[in-house]
């Protein structure tokens, strides 16, 4: 059932949307274990993030998906193995240099009080500024582009805490964009957003990937949105990757019940044609046999 990610050919089938050629991988893990204190949360994971694609990590609560993302962003020291960025151990690269290649938007970031949108987004330029090389025209242009792309230019003067949740999340994404990295990692960028804003944020990330070729890696809770927006889907359970590849291959009824411990139907999403997971609870079923026998779509 589980596929060894190292030998899984599916990662190589991803083609770059911009260049149209099959791409390699700049960010990978090898035998990576991560944990807090003595508790292992990510257990010997080897995987490759396909370049120029949107990779989405899904799994039940506490499966280690956020921890894996934090590990990819060098926020955690590996217990075993390593994270490789351009073939080198990420912990061996100066953190500022990493920050010019790889951007991170953590879960629920908190803006300091009183900080305006333009100030916050401007802080995304920090990795490009040296001790003696201060704010310049290139920084201004990058901030303006980031605000433009995220549709937050007209909020430039506003104080971040006073924005709505959807606006605030777009501003944080703008900050990560101002960093102008080729890779962007996001930990549940849609938490606390209503469904309209979730779609808005995901569309924005899709555009970014499509127009700039930015490699996006994100953790998402919502399985159906994950299936719709991912080029490459990674399913985790108990700190391991149980399957990865195109959503159509990864999302099957058996695997969803394995990963989430829930029976479901997998049908075709009438909008996008991607797999759509319809949960089967203990109630509400029009066809009681489904509940008894498991899904038979």
């Amino acid at each position: 059932m589980s596929i060894d990610p190292a030998t899984d050919a599916s990662t190589d089938r991803i083609t770059d949307r911009v260049t149209g050629r099959v791409t390699g991988t700049r960010l990978a893990t090898h035998d990576l274990s991560l944990g807090y204190d003595d508790r292992t949360v990510v257990d010997h994971v080897t995987t490759r993030v396909p370049d120029g694609a949107v990779t989405v990590v899904v799994g039940a609560n506490a499966c280690g998906k956020s921890t894996l993302l934090r590990g990819l962003a060098r926020l955690l020291r590996p217990g075993t193995g390593q994270v490789l960025l351009d073939g080198k151990s990420i912990h061996g690269i100066p953190t500022k240099e990493v920050a010019r290649t790889l951007g991170l938007l953590p879960q629920n970031p908190v803006a300091p009080k009183g900080v305006t949108v333009v100030d916050l987004v401007g802080r995304g330029r920090a990795p490009h500024q040296g001790r003696f090389q201060r704010w310049g025209a290139a920084d201004e242009a990058a901030v303006a582009r980031a605000l433009e792309v995220t549709g937050t230019l007209d909020l430039a003067d506003r104080v971040v805490d006073e924005l709505s949740g959807g606006q605030r999340q777009r501003v944080w994404i703008a900050m990560a964009l101002a960093q102008e990295t080729d890779l962007l990692l996001l930990d549940e960028p849609t938490t606390y957003l209503d469904v309209a804003h979730q779609v808005e944020v995901l569309d924005l990330l899709h555009d970014l990937n499509a127009t700039r070729g930015t490699t996006v890696v994100m953790v998402l809770h919502e399985l159906n949105l994950a299936a719709r927006y991912a080029d490459h889907l990674v399913a985790m359970a108990d700190g391991r990757i149980v399957a990865e590849g195109p959503p159509r291959e990864v999302i099957t009824q058996e695997r969803v019940s394995e990963v989430f411990g829930m029976q479901c139907l997998v049908v075709e999403d009438p909008v996008s044609g991607t797999p759509l997971v319809v949960p089967i609870g203990r109630h509400h079923s029009r066809r009681p046999t489904l509940v008894a026998n498991g899904a038979t779509a």
Binding site: T95, K96, A99, R100, L104, P106, P109, A126
Partner: peptide
């Protein structure tokens, strides 16, 4: 002041 994770992501040691 952006928090440990964001700061680390921006290359602050």
């Amino acid at each position: 002041e952006l928090g440990d994770d964001t700061a680390a992501g921006l290359g602050s040691s």
